[in-house]
Design a binder for these strands. Structure first.
Lengths: 337, 337
DNA sequence: TGCGGAAATGATAGCGCTATCATTCTCGGC
DNA sequence: GCCGAGAATGATAGCGCTATCATTTCCGCA
């Protein structure tokens, strides 16, 4: 039993403990602990001696033991669907930018949009006793929600604003975003709308808003094109196969939008005489920088993912802050529609 | 003292411990521990009773305590320069894909390409006693390297192959990549080369290779354009300001390359009569999907970031594996040069 | 010179769990 | 029915640190 004690290689010294430092400096263990955590309350003489011993031994405090003793892990669990080429990377960045300077570590888990895996990952996170959980979306399973409630720590859901969050939420109204894009298409005279994206709850909320706006404008029911693999090219192919006659598409993110536009251009569906309206409009979501560089420049629902992350971190650390923050979104119209 | 004991809210029950489960099930604590970790060695009768108690109480094992007792944290520290819109997100994804199914958690830290911060983050990671450290690049400071060595855990450096890694490395030869791109430009008849990117060690290695190839071909010294903010548009502006006469550019990543191409197109520097060579060639690095969708399609040094992550995870978990894995790269030529 | 209060340091106990060894139980073979 | 070996369970003793309270030291001021 016992962490890191006794040299794994008999030739090399063991990883030093606080006790070793104390012995070397000729003080009690608790004084070493104080030098590490509250140097201001230790006299400069002993502090110097202890710091010396720490340096000589290369002592690195064992936060596992510290956490157990103090009931503070200085860590935050973060659960995202995926981190690779995704709009959530900005949110994680934003989180870290707030958390790391305060000495908090980020324990990152990915659910891959899989319900069972989300539940497992939540359990895994909670077993490490983070001081808060920040996740994209609300927990999908009732089990998951219950676990979070029982953990008695701040829980911040992001990228959506559930009616009854476990604890707190930072995001925007996905349903509204769908409505705004749908209305925009209707006003622009588009008739055959399509929606390209996943089937997670946030996408579905946007879809519902989108449908609502289409109905309201007297349009036929929009087509919903489901994307399996997270790929822009895949989105393009799927749209052309499933809804080839659409004249306006709302894509779940800018990567899909760009993939779509690229496929449409290759298919000659973007050719347009100067001064006329392009035959198909595309609006993305996220305001990726690439969208501004692409040609046509990509219209999008702008969302500040980093700001969501920063706000979430603040709610996570301060339970007295308002538990619901709507950061809104903005329809940014560019060349693509 | 003591984690999570005593109800923070006197009305609500405290977070249950293994001891509470044991009492409820009428067994000893150690038996509960076994049900959680090695259910196969517990008779099905007691197992059922214990599992029942676990469910009733909503017990979530405290891994902090478990880690301290067993000297195994089941966690891996991961240090990247940045995770937002970066080629490293794929590597983190690849890592997680291997690690999470094995029950390992990822503790993520970002250095922001800052030497001091890298050192602080390494110390913070090590204090959590991860079973391995995986980082992008080699530690920049000698202090950092020393800390890692003393930690006596596997350390995997990625995205480069240092001559003397602390422990292991998975990546490719950045110098070579520079040489390959430089030679390619020279062979294509380009004369005024430029290099756009940061000044971290990996970028600098590529730069050296690039310069070497230029010299070897008898070209004038390439220009080096330093990018501060991670933005494609910024890269475009910087190039046009610093090296407006370049006829071939090696960009540190595909996002820069696309920003560059976009700026060049806007400046009319990409206009080309059919059948002739474009006046300026651009090669990126990373093979972003977007590069294939952009027009012109982006030539690039293809690197499989996810594969680097997966390989790194395997080296991290198995110290007997070879300590140096060259995953190589590939020059992919498309329209941009 | 001595006193009181603050500053500095220490002794004790325990966080929640697991490694290790000991003990008890079970059961088939003789 | 008894023995021995394996299966199942338990008692004990920490892991490395910090909360809490106790004690000692220091120093300014009466």
């Amino acid at each position: 039993m016992g962490m890191e004690n006794g040299p794994s290689d008999p030739l090399k010294p063991p990883v030093p403990t606080l006790m070793a430092v104390a012995r070397m400096a000729g003080v009690s263990p608790i004084t070493v602990s104080r030098v590490v955590r509250r140097p201001d309350i230790v006299s400069s003489g002993t502090r110097l001696r202890v710091e010396d011993a720490i340096r000589k031994l290369g002592y690195v405090p064992n936060m596992v033991a510290g956490s157990l003793a103090s009931a503070r892990t200085k860590s935050v669990g973060v659960l995202v669907p995926t981190i690779a080429n995704s709009i959530f990377a900005d949110t994680v960045q934003g989180l870290s930018d707030v958390l790391e300077p305060l000495g908090f570590s980020v324990i990152l888990a990915q659910s891959g949009y899989d319900h069972q895996r989300e539940e497992r990952m939540l359990a895994a996170l909670l077993s490490r006793r983070p001081e808060a959980i920040i996740m994209v979306g609300a927990p999908v399973t009732a089990e998951g929600a219950e676990m979070l409630r029982r953990a008695r720590i701040p829980v911040v859901e992001t990228w959506e604003l559930p009616a009854a969050p476990v604890d707190a939420a930072v995001g925007f109204d996905n349903h509204d975003a769908g409505v705004v894009v749908g209305r925009h298409f209707a006003k622009a005279g588009r008739r055959r709308l399509a929606f390209v994206g996943g089937d997670d709850r946030r996408a579905t909320q946007r879809w519902h808003g989108f449908v609502e706006a289409a109905r309201e404008a007297g349009l036929t029911e929009p087509r919903r094109v489901l994307i399996e693999w997270q790929s822009g090219a895949g989105a393009g192919a799927a749209l052309l196969a499933t809804a080839p006659d659409a004249d306006a598409v709302f894509a779940a993110n800018d990567a899909y939008a760009i993939g779509l536009l690229s496929a449409l251009r290759r298919a000659g569906r973007l050719d347009v005489e100067p001064g006329t309206v392009p035959p198909i409009a595309v609006v993305g979501l996220g305001d990726l920088e690439m969208g501004r560089l692409f040609s046509p420049t990509v219209s999008t629902i702008r969302i500040d993912g980093a700001a969501i992350g920063r706000a979430a971190a603040e709610l996570a650390l301060d339970p007295t802050k308002p538990r619901r923050v709507d950061l809104g979104f903005e329809l940014v119209l560019r060349e693509s529609g």
